[in-house]
Structures are given as structure tokens and as C-alpha cells.
Amino acid sequence: MQTELSGTGVAACWRLFGALLLALVLTGAAATGPARAQSPAISQATPNASAFRIVDFDWVDGARSRPVPARLHWPNDVAPGARIPLIVFSHGMGGSRRGYSYLARYWASRGVASLHVQHAGSDTSVWAGNPLTLVQRLQQAAHESEALARGLDVRFALDRVLSRDVGAYEAQIDRQRIVVAGHSYGANTALVAVGAGVMREGRRMEAKDPRFAAAIVISSPPFYGEPQLAPVLENVTVPTLHVTSTGDVIKIPGYYSAAADRLAIYNAIATPRKALAVFQGGSHSMFTDRPGTGGLDLNPKVKAATAELSLAFLDLVFDGDRTAMARWNAKWQPIMASSPGAPPLLRPVARSSVTQ
């Protein structure tokens, strides 16, 4: 089942780091797929907030007897025969397909489609029910079986949107420019989709999908129960963009994660094709649609900066175009946790720079 809504009526529904330099240039980032210099840069497309539509899908993965609802934001002005990028987005703990709409609107108004997947085992349902059993529900939602199921949700949803029986979308999606993204638990899911995995009973559990050419990782928690991150992330080889802040602390019943954990995820990825953006201050939830959290003034700025950075990252990855990334660095320097005027780095930020 699918339901189409109007794109114009959509409402804008963790300890402190030391000063961290901003790593915004990827070494060899354009190695995933051919450069498309003949096409306008994604980030330079003219914004038009009314130039997209929203389609809701109420899919069920019959093989797993699991609902996989999804919401597609699709640009309206895709030229006949043209192919556009697709970002598959995974929400955080307790979220839904309706969340992170500020990103979806920004992307769609610039010609980039996004498919927001809802994960039935860790969506809004975890907040419903007896408050006395909330911790139990959160523990079940964070279990490795659910983490793997979320990765399979992403795969299933991508299968569906690339099939002909849901419309003409598959014919207009550029198979070389499919990206996975997510926030918080969804950032873990995005990493699972590009190769993160754990060893259990002698076998590696993972849900890697080779169709993803890059990943956008916003506020990724640690992989709970895994003392060493390098083995978990050793198979992540696509370019990754990591976004966080010095106030990015996770505090939910039964779980705590300091802001330094976001940097640990970034450092544990072996490939040099990665970038890190650290905002000064803020909070974990300011990357959601919630207004005001992390600071009334900072919140909308971080949202705008994150949206712009994501497409500047895609320009660099797919077209080798560094212009938008350089422009972004100059524009948003005042809210970054970096030395004033510091140039981009070509190397990861050292773990020793973190103040516990």
C-alpha cells in the first residue's frame, strides 16, 4: 500500500571534547564510481521546497514476517531519462519514517531522493506501554538481533524501491549513486549496511549491501558489548561522513554514551576515505526534527549545516568536486569545534586529542 501526500504541506515535523580540527577532505574519495563532471554539482542545485512529493509505503517483508514501512521523498522535476541519487535513511531509537524531515526536504528540493525506513522492533512502539518495562523494551530494541534486523530492513526497502511494481522510481534512480545514512541507532544501521559486523558463535553477523556507494553517519553510538571497534568496522570500505558535536551525549534508560564515542567510531574505520565534522556544543537530539534542543540559536544552524554538508560530501565522493566542501568549511567555521581558520586535514583526528 502507498499513500501520496503534498510536499508543500510537510511541517518541520555526550562529556566535552577538547578542540577538534575539522577533517573535510577525503583521500581518494572519488574512487567509488565514475566522475560525472558533465552534471551540475548536487549541492549547487537551486532549492525549491515545493518541488517534491511524499509517498508512504506500508511494506511487509514476507520472508521475515516483518513490517517495513517507508516514506519516499521524490523530486517532482526529474527530467525524462534522467537518473538521480538516492539516500536510504535509518532513524534512531524510538523514531519513525516521518522523522528527519529537514534533511529529506533539503535533499529532495535539490534533486536527491530519500527513502526513510521505519524499523518495527525499535521504532515509536518502544515508548508505548508500561513505563516500568521501558528499560526492558529498550534492551530488546538494542539487542544484536534487532540491530541485524534493521540492516535487513534497509536492504529490503532498497529492493522494493528498485523494483518495478512500486512505480517508475527504479528507472530514474542512479544505481551508482545510492547512499545509506542514519542518526544514532540509525547511524549504526548505516554502518551495518556498509559492512559493520560482529562475531557470534564463530560466524560473522552482518547485513552488508554492496549497492551502497557511501554512508552518512550522524551521532553513531558505540557497538554495545564490543570492546574492540576495529574488528566490527574492518569491512567498511566505502567513503563515510561522520557528523557529531561536543555535546553529543546519549542518555536513555539503561544506556549512556559519552561524546568521545562518536570519535572512536570515526577513528576505528580503517579506510582514509572518511570525513569528520564536529560542532561546538549542542546535544544528541539536535540532529532530529526536534526544535530548540542543543540551543535555540545553535539548533537550526546545525540542521542547516548538516544538510548542506551531506550534499557537499556527495559532490566530493561522486564527482571529485571539492568546491562545495571548501565553501562549507568557510561558511560554518564559527560553530565548529576547531581552531579558527584551521585548514582541513587529510588524516583522522588522533584519539589522544579527546579529553575524557
Rank of each mutant, 00 (worst) to 15 (best):
G94N: 06
E170D: 13
W59R: 00
A41I: 09
S125T: 05
A120L: 13
V25D: 14
S39G: 14
S257D: 13
F17V: 09
S96G: 13
D58S: 14
D321H: 08
F52H: 06
W127M: 12
D319S: 12
Y106E: 05
A215V: 05
L298Q: 05
A149V: 04
W74T: 01
S50W: 08
R211K: 11
H119Y: 00
L346T: 08
Q2N: 15
S283M: 05
L276T: 00
V10Y: 06
D209G: 05
G254R: 04
V238Y: 01
V88M: 03
S122V: 05
Y255I: 15
G121L: 09
G62F: 03
P221F: 06
C13L: 15
P47M: 06
G28C: 04
A342K: 11
S43L: 03
Q44M: 14
L5F: 09
E4H: 08
G92H: 02
E144H: 15
A19G: 13
Y255R: 15
L346D: 07
L152E: 08
R327C: 10
S352P: 07
T189M: 11
E226A: 13
H91Y: 10
G121P: 03
L16R: 13
F156T: 04
S145W: 07
A304H: 03
A37K: 12
V161S: 02
I216Y: 00
L162E: 06
G292I: 04
S122Q: 08
